[in-house]
Amino acid sequence: MKRMLISCFAAALLFSPGWAVAEAKGKQQSKPKWVDKNKDGIPDDWELKYKLGLGKNVANQDKDRDGLTNRVEYNLRLNPTKTDTDKDKILDGDEDTDRDGLTNSAEVALGTKPEDADSDNDRVKDGAEKKGKAKLSNVVQKLELQIKTAANQIIKVGYHWSERHSHLHMKDQTGEVTASDVQALISDLQASPSLPNDQVIAKIQTLFSLDTPFRLELEWKYGSGRTRKLSVKQSDKGNTTGQPGDGEDDDDQDDDEGHDQDDDGKNSDSPDDASDE
């Protein structure tokens, strides 16, 4: 009888309003607090942990200059003050965190989500999506080209993707190379990522109207992170020297010479602006 009374009393307490309120308060107190005073989508304690401050533009800053904003680094659980969070000798921007065939920095440039392998939820991985005829993994993210012509004139081209727009820097002492020529080269490299080196050289020679002899150095990087390099000297007899295989080393230094040129193809540099080397 006593046991029955004790059981009934315990049940009454369990289902009484006071007990329910106390239980609810206990649950509320156990929930972690997520404070975001500057309303940038990043917890304040994460920003303070890495000494980023609590300013209005913290989320869009790139303190370690690895090509990823603080917001992206937070979403990827990376250290926003180190260029190589896991110390594997691959920069955070060159990692493919979601394994979709695109590097983190390429995803930022192309507008896809580096933390989501299928940004648009169409059951096709981001790297397999297509831009025109080329897969996004084959899109040229960066290209650096320097040529010394038979007349000792210099041609310099710097190209990179940034926030869905291409930027082109050109210095051309010959006055013959146009933005359309550069775009045609990039389109060929995207359409055929495994194009043999000799065919790449032949395309450049044709597009840029190069007479022999000439010297050429080219490096380009795909959205997949693959990097290819060429360094050749073409003689007037048609002999080619110094033609290595494809490289995997990345060159993260931008060519600051020249002015930006967007997709409209207008070249803001004139041949007179180029300096002799």
Rank of each mutant, 00 (worst) to 15 (best):
A274S: 15
D116Y: 05
D62H: 08
L52N: 01
D263P: 09
Q61S: 11
K203L: 07
Q199V: 00
R65P: 02
D272S: 13
V72Y: 03
N121K: 15
G258K: 04
S194A: 14
I6Q: 05
R226E: 14
K89N: 08
D264H: 06
S105G: 01
Q199C: 00
K39S: 04
I42Q: 00
E95K: 07
V200T: 05
P43A: 06
K133Y: 06
G93I: 05
S209K: 15
Q190N: 14
T174H: 05
D118M: 11
K39Q: 08
K33P: 05
S137H: 12
H165D: 05
V35C: 02
V182L: 03
K221M: 15
K2C: 04
D98Y: 01
L185I: 10
K63R: 14
T83P: 00
I90Q: 10
K233T: 14
N57Q: 13
C8E: 05
S192C: 00
F208E: 05
G247R: 07
D188F: 03
T103C: 00
N38R: 10
H165K: 06
G26A: 15
K113T: 13
D62T: 07
T149K: 01
M4N: 15
M1G: 08
L185P: 06
A134I: 10
L143Y: 03
S137W: 01
A184G: 02
D255W: 04
E248C: 00
G132Y: 07
D86I: 15
I6A: 11
S275G: 12
